[in-house]
Design a protein around this nucleic acid. Structure first.
Lengths: 249, 249
DNA sequence: CGTTAGGTTGAATCCTCTCAACAGCCGTGG
DNA sequence: CCACGGCTGTTGAGAGGATTCAACCTAACG
């Protein structure tokens, strides 16, 4: 690093210090000094316009990215020329964990709206983590947790109906907003119906129809990409039921 | 560790040295000394009978396990008293990556047949990895790769028919056997139809019917839990198509 | 102001689930 | 040794849900 000698409260470091998301992307209980060391390797934030892409699928992996504002999607195209939405990133999320293993970004990252992200050079981070067990743990935890959550989530979705899948999805989003300090009942989701469908394995028509059905039952109110969850309890019941006819005991 | 002074070719170390799976669970290009250090922290292998469980869901996380022989499944029960088969482990696989984050095992691990596994104390492994970058990288890669593979796989499955899901699944198994040096065309899968269904989000009837349909088309031959893949090319076509009617361009 | 992408709605088709009945295999226990 | 129940796997019939295809509507944007 060129700025090796800088004090921990220099401009880049304070970027992290002042960031209200630090509880999400950084370990807690860092000493000010550790904080400084870490902040020093963070590059200046990158600004992205809507639809602009951060990295291309297949490009060689070099940085992790922490979402500061806005939201981004990961689209991956498989062998058979189908492209799937494989991840949604909200402020505080770290992008790129899934690309460490192969050395190439596993999908194209596209901004769903104007967004800004922090660049984290992985080499530096890795080198640092060998000397800072607390950081190593934090990274491990973060990877491991997202892996286990996603595994369970996707397996649960596999056997569910569109009704349950959507409820499950919306409640997940709601929780993520809650963790970030936003309202869990009212939020804007910058994804199209098609995006949601791609993520959940449904067609855009089905997504729309299901949302309409929810509205008819007063479970939520949707206007465009604005969502108001009205009856979370009932949505939870829906999400955790298979949505199918009861198998008789 | 009590056995800190042991030479690298002592009994536990040689266990790994002589293990034909070391290419899978250990980094390649280790010096004999590093090899010894690593081998020293590996506990004696654990033997499991069919149906015996290795760890219970929710137990506090302490060890990773490397599968030596046999096969195991991870079953996770969600909130709503449904239990899902969330992972299948074959020789050379590492069990437990998904449990580092939460500190608790994320599912019960059950042997599908008589199996043996190596215990890897995570604390030691982690401590070691701070001094051995090559090991740290290997662990990171392993976690990251399984995470990304699984994410893509499950998202692809979400929008596919039973026909495509099963083909996809069987080809995945086939590849894993190939990597391990077994025949990719003929193998025994110790899972029941119900297990497969749970993993893929299908009912056991559908699994059976689909296998029967494959046999009628001479794509494969199944007898009980013995599988012979006859026409891999055609299976691959099936697996990578959605299985649905072609959407017209 | 026209074009395009996103969204809604309807009708028909197809796939998978549910339910039910039955065959085979295995271990237990009489 | 055989009977028994339990577990696993197979097959069939009917119902329900998601998809495909088509038409139409809206909002955004050059």
């Amino acid at each position: 690093m060129a700025n090796h000698g800088k004090r921990f409260d220099d401009s880049t470091a304070s970027q992290c210090l002042s960031c209200y998301l630090k509880a999400l992307c950084l370990p807690r209980d860092l000493t000010p000094e550790q904080f400084g060391t870490l902040g020093r390797i963070v590059d200046a934030p990158v600004r992205l316009d809507k639809r602009e892409s951060l990295v291309q699928q297949g490009a060689t992996f070099s940085h992790l990215y922490a979402v500061r504002t806005g939201s981004l999607k990961q689209v991956t195209d498989g062998a058979n020329s189908e492209t799937l939405l494989t991840a949604l990133y909200l402020p505080g999320d770290i992008i790129g964990f899934d690309s460490i293993g192969s050395g190439h970004y596993s999908g194209t990252i596209v901004a769903l709206e104007s967004s800004s992200v922090c660049r984290l050079p992985f080499e530096c981070l890795d080198e640092l983590s060998s000397r800072m067990p607390i950081l190593r743990r934090h990274l491990q935890r973060n990877i491991s947790r997202t892996m286990q959550e996603e595994r369970l989530r996707l397996h649960q979705l596999l056997s569910r109906t569109a009704e349950a899948r959507l409820a499950y999805f919306l409640l997940g989003i709601s929780n993520r907003f809650r963790q970030r300090g936003y309202s869990p009942h009212h939020f804007r989701l910058a994804m199209s119906r098609g995006d949601i469908g791609s993520y959940l394995g449904l067609t855009h028509e089905t997504v729309g129809r299901t949302l309409a059905a929810y509205q008819a039952q007063r479970l939520l109110y949707v206007s465009g990409r604005d969502y108001h969850l009205l009856d979370v309890t009932r949505l939870e019941r829906l999400a955790s039921s298979t949505g199918r006819r009861q198998k008789r005991a």
